[in-house]
Computed example of a mutant assay.
Amino acid sequence: MKNFLKNFVRDESGASAAEYVLILAIVGSTIAVGALALGGAISDSLTAAGTAIESYEIEPAAG
């Protein structure tokens, strides 16, 4: 039992797993925030392009 407790205290594999989970959570949340921001920017750009196309008037050819 004493050896089991010593080995349990010295085992750092759980700490490594927790660190990997934290890194994945940070990277995942950064990707999600970036995707939301990029999606908003693309939406705004397409709306502006659509508005510009709708407001464009073709002038009759001089003739």
Rank of each mutant, 00 (worst) to 15 (best):
L46Q: 03
A35T: 02
L46T: 03
A17S: 05
E57I: 04
E57T: 06
A49D: 07
G28F: 09
F4W: 10
I53K: 08
T47S: 09
D11V: 00
A32V: 06
A62D: 01
A62T: 03
V21I: 15
I23P: 04
A25E: 10
V21R: 08
L36Q: 06
V9Q: 15
A61F: 12
V9L: 15
L22P: 13
A49K: 13
M1R: 15
A25V: 10
G14I: 02
K2R: 15
N7R: 05
D44C: 11
V27A: 04
A49I: 12
I53G: 01
E57N: 10
G50K: 11
N7I: 02
I23L: 14
F8S: 08
A49F: 08
I23F: 06
V33G: 00
G14H: 02
L38N: 10
A15E: 12
P60A: 05
G40F: 07
A18P: 00
S16C: 07
A18W: 03
A61M: 11
Y20H: 11
G40V: 06
A37I: 09
E57V: 06
I23D: 12
K2G: 09
A25D: 12
G63I: 10
S55T: 03
A61Y: 08
G50V: 10
A15V: 09
L46F: 02
A15N: 08
I58T: 11
V27I: 03
S29T: 11
A17T: 04
S55E: 06
E54A: 13
S43T: 09
E59N: 00
D11G: 00
A61P: 05
G50C: 13
S55L: 01
S13G: 02
V27L: 03
S13Y: 01
G40S: 08
G50D: 11
T30Y: 00
